[in-house]
Simulated assay, not measured.
Amino acid sequence: MNKIISNYIQAHKQEILDQWIDRTKEEADDRVIRLVSDRVFQSTSKEFIDLIISNFKGTSEEYNERLTDFAEKVVRLGWPLTFVTKGLHTFNLIVFEGMQKEGVVTQENQMEIVYEFDRWATPMNNEIVSVYSSTWERTVSLQKIALQELSAPLIPVFEGITVMPLVGTIDTERAKQIMENLLKGAVKHRSEVVLIDITGVPVVDTMVAHHIIQAADAVRLIGAKCMLVGIRPEIAQTIVNLGIDLNQFTTKNNLKKGIEAALELTNKKIVSLEGAK
């Protein structure tokens, strides 16, 4: 960066930071401000300004490492990419206006300084966008894997009896995950009866029912019985209205009754011990 610009930034660092925070707060989306406390906003803003300055102060390797760390931080905070790119534009504007007021920018050197700003800011902006985007994609990918692992667990409750509680909307991608977890889990736990609990599924339409029926058929092919539990009155009415045929496997209106039926199917029962409290 032009020596005139870098010297001005170094001499007015705190003033630039204060102006940047004030302007950013005025122009930022409300959700950016609400997401973090004022202290975190202040510290992150300072880190961003330090990062910008380090672009011409330190080594390329050191700068890239700091940029990656900062991108990961703002992704965790939930700040959008536009907030970061606008922040760089605001920084340049504050510096340029300040240099104009102090007479550092003159008619003679104005075009040269504008060119230097653009030559410095454009690669940095591109680098910020690239690192932020890759960090966001990596974060989303990890979250997706974690959600998939949690979205369709198969839980052993008694020997030979397992339960898969389903919560939320079931789409095609999630249905594949359910099928995979169901088959792997049934084999792993040596399940004789598998209960699919749809208490937490808000809507059961033709597609959802089709996926559940497919899962039940797959479980039967590996030698286990499948039972559908958690059928609320409104879900039962929807199933009837849609003409969905669930006759091929047992249904119960709640998990308790489903477990009782599963115990009978596996020749087990729960008994109370005499004298037990």
Results as ranks from 00 to 15, higher is better:
Gly200Gln: 01
Lys225Cys: 07
Asn55Arg: 08
Asp118Ala: 15
Thr59Leu: 07
Asn92Val: 09
Glu102Ser: 10
Ala224Ile: 08
Thr82Cys: 05
Ser6Trp: 07
Ile5Lys: 07
Ser191Cys: 02
Glu112Ile: 12
Leu228Glu: 04
Val167Gln: 10
Val194Thr: 05
Ala175Gln: 06
Glu102Trp: 07
Thr139Met: 09
Asn7Glu: 14
Ser60Gln: 13
Val204Arg: 01
Met227Asn: 01
Ile170Phe: 01
Leu246Trp: 07
Glu159Trp: 06
Ala236Gln: 02
Ile161Glu: 00
Ala209Thr: 06
Thr68Ala: 15
Glu102Val: 09
Leu263Val: 02
Thr82Asp: 12
Gly200Val: 08
Glu234Cys: 08
Ile52Pro: 00
Val114Gln: 05
Ile213Glu: 02
Asp29Asn: 13
Gly223Leu: 04
Leu150Glu: 04
Ile128Lys: 01
Ala218Asp: 02
His189Arg: 10
Arg66Ala: 09
Val204Glu: 00
Lys101Tyr: 09
Ser133Glu: 06
Asn253Trp: 04
Lys101Glu: 15
Ile155Gln: 06
Glu116Ser: 15
Thr206Cys: 00
Gly160Glu: 02
Thr59Phe: 07
Phe41Gly: 09
Phe48Asn: 02
Asn2Asp: 15
Ala175His: 04
Glu159His: 07
Val74Ile: 15
Gln107Cys: 09
Gly275Ala: 10
Leu77Lys: 11
Asn241Leu: 13
Leu255Ile: 08
Ile4Met: 08
Val75Gly: 07
Arg174Trp: 01
Ile94Asp: 05
Val240Ala: 14
Val95Met: 05
Lys101Arg: 15
Leu166Lys: 02
Pro80Asp: 14
Glu260Asp: 07
Met1Thr: 02
Thr85Met: 06
Ile259Cys: 03
Leu246Gly: 03
Val229Ile: 08
Val229Ala: 10
Val167Gly: 02
Ser43Phe: 12
Glu47Arg: 14
Glu234Thr: 10
Arg31Gln: 08
Val157Tyr: 00
Asp38Glu: 15
Glu159Phe: 04
Glu61His: 03
Glu26Cys: 06
Asp217Trp: 04
Gly78Ala: 10
Thr172Trp: 11
Phe117Tyr: 12
Ser133Met: 09
Lys101Ile: 12
Asn267His: 14
Thr266Trp: 12
Ile94Leu: 11
Asn125Gln: 11
Ile259Glu: 00
Ile235Trp: 00
Asn126Asp: 14
Glu234Pro: 03
Phe41Ser: 06
Ile235Leu: 12
Thr251Lys: 01
Ala262His: 00
Lys86Val: 07
Trp20Ile: 02
Phe41Trp: 15
Val40Glu: 08
Asp245Arg: 09
Leu51Gln: 01
Pro80Val: 14
Leu77Arg: 11
Glu65Ile: 13
Ala71Arg: 03
Ala236Trp: 08
Asp38His: 10
Leu51Val: 11
Glu65Lys: 15
Arg220Leu: 10
Gln248Asn: 14
Ala209Arg: 05
Asn55Tyr: 14
Ala121Asn: 10
Phe56Glu: 10
Gln19Asn: 10
Ala186Val: 11
